[in-house]
Write a protein that binds this DNA or RNA. Structure first.
Lengths: 261, 261
DNA sequence: TGTGTGCAGCCTGTCGACAATTGTATTCAT
DNA sequence: ATGAATACAATTGTCGACAGGCTGCACACA
């Protein structure tokens, strides 16, 4: 039971990185839902490390917008409101549309576009497999594959713009969106085909050096995705407000004669 | 000489915040030039605190892109290359143009536009004062005022879009640009008037709900600013390469027969 | 004189401990 | 029984200390 000895063979990364990935995985997997409070000591116990690396990982997650820190009550997982979804998708739209416009104006050859076309074809294969089966929506693994392809496509898309800072901001933005999308419902074949067509049309427009068209299609694509997510949010919100009545009003002193506020 | 007793009357903020502001001020004032290495211990000594708050402040500055961390050599102030300036201004253009387009489409009344008009008028006063004097460019204090007005104008402009995340990203972007602009040269009256005219035209376009025009003018405005900064960078680069020959080649073992690389 | 080796200094990464604060449960007084 | 004061528990902010790695220099040796 070595105490202070670092363990370079077990974790090639630093303990801070390890803690960061650990917490991020717990958030991304849905094990830590929105509103959960994270205690530094318990996390440190779980990781078998001191509070310091955990603390730094938490700070980083706060800086990235995944956690919120209240002065002396610890860090809680952010809860994305409707407005947050709107803001995140606006960020995506502004940056991705700009990047694709720039990419279409400069020279972008098949070396960059072909890998993206391959990703689109993978998604099309996914759709065809879905159509051949009797199911209506994707299962969990297929859904994960679809999300990974979508992530890769848009990541390469932004890379075409050649702006590393933009890529960094967008990665954080997409990470936040993805964390919300745990409740994401599966797409049916028609939706997937629609997405693929748009993705392909964007690539064609870039190959044609038609910046305006590429920007227009991408903008519509992101807006559609946003609307989808908002509808999903509204549906989920309605259900949850019907199911559990007032979980936030536990501190009301059971004085029913007082009207609200 | 109390040791562990916090000093609440001297620093209402936490020591971490204090350290953050301290380091940021040193960077912004130019006391710490690009490439300077920051030692945690010496900073902690200067602040009379432990390494922990300094370390957290440094982490935050790294996350914000002002410092770079190399594995075991500490944190150094970033050196903005030409490509960095291009990227930062592209970020500004993408986000600000998007925000002003949205602002022009939704209803934006005089309550929001009038404060911005007041800022533009302040800058016009600055220009008139410059024309009345015999000087050609602004002095240091006037320059600071101009920069503050410009910052305020663009900050309000982005606020019109109603996207807090966009505002946050842009604040960090502008901070990085501003840090580079220590070497900034003063503007003459014609340049200032040009800026004011563009600023005013943008406001008029927003008041007219003419999103296309507002976006177009703002885009041109930011591109002009970027070009100005790039010219300045090239000039500075040329001078500095003429003045000091090879400060980076000190570790070459004085073997003049070996060709470069 | 050129080269390898060891040492010292500095630096970061990590740890355990302490102080202060805040939310909560308990208890006491009316 | 209820409201207020209080003690407690948990958590964060901060501190000093230690371990390991890297750099650069001096020194010994060929």
């Amino acid at each position: 039971m070595r105490k202070n000895v670092p363990d370079p063979m077990h974790s090639s990364r630093s303990r801070r990185e390890e803690a960061y990935r650990h917490i991020l995985a717990k958030i991304a997997s849905g094990e830590l839902k929105a509103g959960s409070t994270l205690s530094e000591v318990s996390l440190a116990r779980n990781l078998g490390s001191s509070r310091t690396p955990v603390r730094e990982a938490l700070s980083q997650l706060v800086a990235e917008g995944l956690l919120e820190q209240t002065p002396n009550r610890g860090a809680v997982v952010v809860e994305l409101k409707r407005q947050d979804i709107v803001e995140l998708y606006e960020l995506r739209e502004a940056l991705e549309v700009y990047a694709i416009g720039k990419a279409a104006r400069i020279h972008v050859g098949p070396d960059e576009l072909d890998p993206m076309r391959r990703i689109v074809k993978q998604v099309l294969l996914l759709k065809e497999g879905l159509e051949r089966s009797d199911r209506n929506v994707l299962d969990f693994d297929e859904m994960r594959h679809l999300v990974a392809c979508d992530l890769g496509y848009h990541s390469l898309l932004v890379r075409l713009g050649g702006n590393a800072r933009m890529l960094k901001v967008l990665n954080e933005t997409r990470l936040l969106i993805r964390i919300f999308s745990i409740h994401r419902s599966g797409h049916d074949a028609a939706q997937i085909e629609n997405i693929c067509r748009q993705h392909m049309e964007i690539l064609d427009a870039v190959a044609d050096r038609d910046a305006e068209r590429a920007m227009h299609i991408l903008s519509a694509h992101i807006r559609a995705s946003r609307q989808e997510r908002l509808d999903e949010y509204d549906r989920w919100q309605r259900e949850s407000s019907l199911r559990s009545a007032f979980p936030a009003f536990l501190d009301v002193p059971s004085d029913l004669s007082r009207s609200a506020d």
